[in-house]
């Protein structure tokens, strides 16, 4: 039941992303997706393999849920954030928008904890919140660099 729910959620997220009016160039979208896939798999590996502050469920169904979360749900939530962000013009609204998505990501992670997909071992939830913020900042910086590269080559945004 949990697995079908998460797969349905992933499909809905993918379709929503596909039909969404994207404000970023296609290359920017690919760039962000690849950076996010790399970051999220590294971030999770460090937490549950190296530091052992997370345990991922051994049960196959729950383990697949975690993989779907890592490779589809997590990056596509951020990708949607980056595509919708240009709609907000003022700095304050951008910050609120970022805060909202950091909150969404944290709630999704919390949900996985409630489902026993992830078990915290002395890991405080607020640290996840900080890490989500750090990840979005890293992607923003990488995107700014890539956008500058595109601008120099005359690719319209």
């Amino acid at each position: 039941m949990k697995l079908t729910l998460i797969i349905d959620a992933a499909i809905i997220l993918l379709v929503s992303y596909y039909i969404m009016k994207k404000r970023l160039h296609l290359f920017e979208n690919i760039f962000i997706l690849m950076i996010l896939e790399f970051l999220v798999t590294s971030y999770c590996a460090i937490l549950y393999i190296n530091l052992d502050v997370w345990t991922i469920a051994n049960d196959t169904e729950l383990f697949i849920i975690f993989r779907v979360y890592e490779t589809i749900i997590y990056p596509f939530i951020w990708l949607s954030y980056f595509n919708l962000q240009p709609f907000f013009k003022s700095a304050l609204s951008k910050w609120i928008w970022t805060g909202l998505f950091v909150g969404i990501q944290s709630v999704v992670e919390r949900w996985l904890v409630e489902w026993d997909v992830i078990t915290y071992k002395g890991w405080p939830f607020w640290l996840s919140f900080i890490l989500q913020t750090l990840i979005v900042l890293i992607v923003h910086l990488a995107l700014a660099w890539y956008r500058n590269l595109m601008r120099k080559e005359g690719i319209p945004e």
């Binding site: 290359f27 690919i30 760039f31 950076i35 896939e37 790399f38 798999t41 890539y146 590269l149 080559e153």
Partner: peptide
């Protein structure tokens, strides 16, 4: 290739390798 595309061609190898190893 233009630099912006070169970056994507470099990243695709890294990303696929990372995902496969992670899985």
């Amino acid at each position: 290739f233009p630099r912006s595309i070169t970056v994507l061609f470099l990243l695709i190898g890294t990303t696929i390798a990372r995902l496969s190893d992670h899985l």
